[in-house]
């Protein structure tokens, strides 16, 4: 992986290489360089298979991390390309013309994270959710339990006691 990194480094400004396994590494690239890097990887380096495209919400830093995982199936190794995006407003170039499957990933990211991919086919259509009007659910600031309790109303009649408190009450009733 290191040799590949050194090769890429001459052409692209890359962040540090994180070698997770001998056949898997991650590298960070600026938003603007992503497209040309992916093209280079696909056409020159044999990384023809886009394994996945997903996002990680680093809420505390105010960033989204997009991970493009590329696979070179002849060399049997993977390279994860990370792109950091500002969280609000989040927008990224579409790569659906490089891999038609990317359009699906981008639709999902649009719906679940609220990351826009202008020009991607059907990107504004409902994908998985239907009639969703709240914060995109995969964002870290969306509290799913709270939402569920309010909207779906769990069955009443459940209550639990904390052993510590309960024992204090039972054993030392006057010292609560």
């Amino acid at each position: 992986m290191r040799d590949l990194y050194d090769r890429l480094k001459t052409a692209f400004p890359l962040g540090e290489l994180t070698e997770q396994r001998p056949d898997l590494a991650f590298v960070t690239v600026a938003k603007e360089q992503l497209r040309s890097l992916l093209l280079h990887l696909r056409d020159q380096e044999g990384f023809t298979h886009l394994v996945l495209l997903t996002a990680v919400d680093w809420l505390e830093e105010g960033n989204f991390q997009l991970t493009y995982l590329m696979n070179n199936r002849l060399a049997c190794r993977d390279l994860g390309v990370r792109v950091m995006l500002p969280r609000d407003p989040a927008s990224m170039d579409s790569i659906h013309d490089l891999w038609p499957t990317a359009a699906t990933y981008q639709r999902e990211l649009r719906e679940m994270f609220g990351i826009d991919f202008p020009g991607s086919p059907r990107v504004d259509e409902d994908f998985i959710l239907e009639g969703w009007i709240r914060t995109p659910p995969y964002r870290r600031d969306f509290d799913t339990l709270k939402f569920s309790d309010e909207v779906f109303a769990p069955r009443p009649g459940r209550a639990s006691s904390d052993p510590t408190e309960f024992m204090k009450q039972q054993l030392y009733p006057d010292k609560t």
Partner: peptide, 19 residues
């Protein structure tokens, strides 16, 4: 269907069918 099962905290599944 009874009380949400393991998706009791999911934002996309109902918890009580009898509702």
């Amino acid at each position: 269907t009874i009380n949400g099962g393991m998706y009791f905290d999911s934002y996309n599944t109902i918890t009580r069918l009898d509702q």
